[in-house]
Design a protein around this nucleic acid. Sequence first.
DNA 1: GGCTAACCGAGACGGTACGTCAAGTCTTGGC
DNA 2: GCCAAGACTTGACGTACCGTCTCGGTTAGCC
Lengths: 213, 213, 213, 213
Amino acid sequence: MDAPRRTRNGPRRSEAARVAVLRAADDLLVDSGFQAVTVGSIAERAGVSKQTIYRWWRSKIDILLDVLEEDLPDDVTSRPPGTESAQEVLTGHVTHLNRVFTRSDTGRVLFVLIGHALQDATTASALRNQVLDRRRGHARARLRNALACDAPGALPRQEADRLLDLLAGPVFHRAFMTGRPTDPLFAERLAATVLTCRQGTPLDGAPAAGPTL
Amino acid sequence: MDAPRRTRNGPRRSEAARVAVLRAADDLLVDSGFQAVTVGSIAERAGVSKQTIYRWWRSKIDILLDVLEEDLPDDVTSRPPGTESAQEVLTGHVTHLNRVFTRSDTGRVLFVLIGHALQDATTASALRNQVLDRRRGHARARLRNALACDAPGALPRQEADRLLDLLAGPVFHRAFMTGRPTDPLFAERLAATVLTCRQGTPLDGAPAAGPTL
Amino acid sequence: MDAPRRTRNGPRRSEAARVAVLRAADDLLVDSGFQAVTVGSIAERAGVSKQTIYRWWRSKIDILLDVLEEDLPDDVTSRPPGTESAQEVLTGHVTHLNRVFTRSDTGRVLFVLIGHALQDATTASALRNQVLDRRRGHARARLRNALACDAPGALPRQEADRLLDLLAGPVFHRAFMTGRPTDPLFAERLAATVLTCRQGTPLDGAPAAGPTL
Amino acid sequence: MDAPRRTRNGPRRSEAARVAVLRAADDLLVDSGFQAVTVGSIAERAGVSKQTIYRWWRSKIDILLDVLEEDLPDDVTSRPPGTESAQEVLTGHVTHLNRVFTRSDTGRVLFVLIGHALQDATTASALRNQVLDRRRGHARARLRNALACDAPGALPRQEADRLLDLLAGPVFHRAFMTGRPTDPLFAERLAATVLTCRQGTPLDGAPAAGPTL
DNA sequence: GGCTAACCGAGACGGTACGTCAAGTCTTGGC
DNA sequence: GCCAAGACTTGACGTACCGTCTCGGTTAGCC
């Protein structure tokens, strides 16, 4: 089981083609908008045949999911752990989210995919399973770590998720609904608000009452 | 331009057809999903010809915008104004938003339209101009009114918008991204948090510094 | 039932498109060979969309069947009936067949369709039902009429068909298999042979014995 | 060029693969029809790779030509030469042709190849060169031999070919065009007719006049 | 009451993209 | 060098939906 039981013959999947397709899809989306992203146009720009695309992806949405998975930047702070205050960590996270949403090419891809997910449940779950859940896991861990410094006692997973919703939601909303990005001031205040919320007493007994939360 | 220069002859627009189209589009979307909503299928289900549709709408998105405009429920509270605390008003708004997003047929329409708006700038501005801005105006007024009781002094428009983002964002995020709706407890805590944020001192001098906010 | 019970609304089938498609298919086949006859290329040359073709025909073979039905020339002799000898009628028929097979554009179409029929039973029966049977009926009638002059007594249908096979077969075989057409001398001798066969005594009692013939 | 300049290394062509391919092509054609005969399906059924096929054949038509060449039965009569009358020889040939066309698996292959030849000149000449001409040569020799008994004096080659056309044509025509096979009675009468034609005087001076015949 | 413009149903039309299929070529690693 | 496996380019296939258009029939409203 540890050894490749049988060495497969024949040509392997062309890495060059794979990369060219992902890059072509990304470029087309950024340059010309989603309606220009066609399996045919991706194939042409990537210098690849349509059939090669359909051999490895089931749809252009599938391609964009792979683009997202590869390109979506993680929230990595350069500072060593433990040297940041909780406020700084949260502010940094908000800023990171905003930057991803509004400035990166990958943000465009994310927009389109969320847009498609809102119209199609299959895309929605694929997006969650393939991309979002992992990111949410990272963010949750970071958050728990940051808050553990200030408030001793474990931060329950559900509670962490609530806080993440409070953090990400407004950034999201501003970027998507109003079209105006989150400015640094808003980021800072948002972080502070969430921290305040965390420290408030009303939460203490609450989580037990929220069954599915 | 002011006067209809000439009295028109012939029959006027058929109200029956208009309603049948809107209803057919809504039903199709709710019953069979967005990919089943085509101009042809709407026409068929409405017992109307495609030409009649294209005479009055430019695309199926246009139809859905009209559906949304007609059906999207306003946040109407049964209580007379002035008898609710700010906390109650905010909690009610959050609850209303959540109900619209997750329970109504119109929520499906809204989802789809936001999804399309994320892929197409034209749809985005149409959605904002035709539907969202008006709702936002109502919500802002309601918010200003509610907060004026507790905190004398006008609530600046930009500040009100910030608070609305704080309120709507997490509801939005939960409904869209995690797929789990907002529960009453979360609604209450969210309202409280936003109120806390409003009363905090850090905001006092701040708005002046936020240029584009 | 005699009256068109209800006048249909809407646009009728475009005769121009129909004719253009048939003509384009014929031209492509004659100019560039069968492998150049593609639904796409027909559409392009006819100035028509692919969908219009698929609305009215199920395949390019269907189109060619229509071409054949419209263009395949009948065996019409200029002479008034009764002024030709049986030999002349038969020779004329053979010459006609040969000319159709080897010289006309329609002959190319016929070749291709027979070729396809040899590979596909559906095409074979369509070809027979739509085109060949009618021609065979005409030829049979002409043959019976011609032979009735010389040999009193009705020519049974089965017998007529046998003679038609004897007549058409060799023309066919030369055109298809050897690639060399039937010359006038061969035509004359073929006709004479068939006549001889007809007058011979061996046939008299025979047809009764041939069950499925 | 005269000497194989160097003894080749490595394995020679796999006879097993060659046979498997021919057999697979034949089986597929007989079992599932021509449209099921693809290079891929042949390779799969033969347990052979596509490359191996393309190394030795240029197309699936090429394969079928080989199938035909190997399997097409010769017209071998069990009787010793000289013990059959001309009528018997001719009747036997007609019967043989009919059996090949209508009953054997190879007949299916022949049909398909003739069908393809009618659509493609290259296939037509390949079919003639590789298969048909040799068979025609055998048939011609047999015919000349048979007729020499009854009618002393050499049967010119062109004349023999004419007679072969007269013989094969109707069998062909019945099998291909009408779909009804040749019955024994028809075979006998056909042979008799051709013999009659042969013995008639009109032929004597004729061949000289037919230039390309 | 007739005229006429605008409405309506039906649905054919030119397009664009889809997703599938087969042909024929090329690449890899084993024998 | 042959072979199995199979990825690759190419190009036709047949389908779906778009948005436009053309019919014949049906109402208003004004003369």
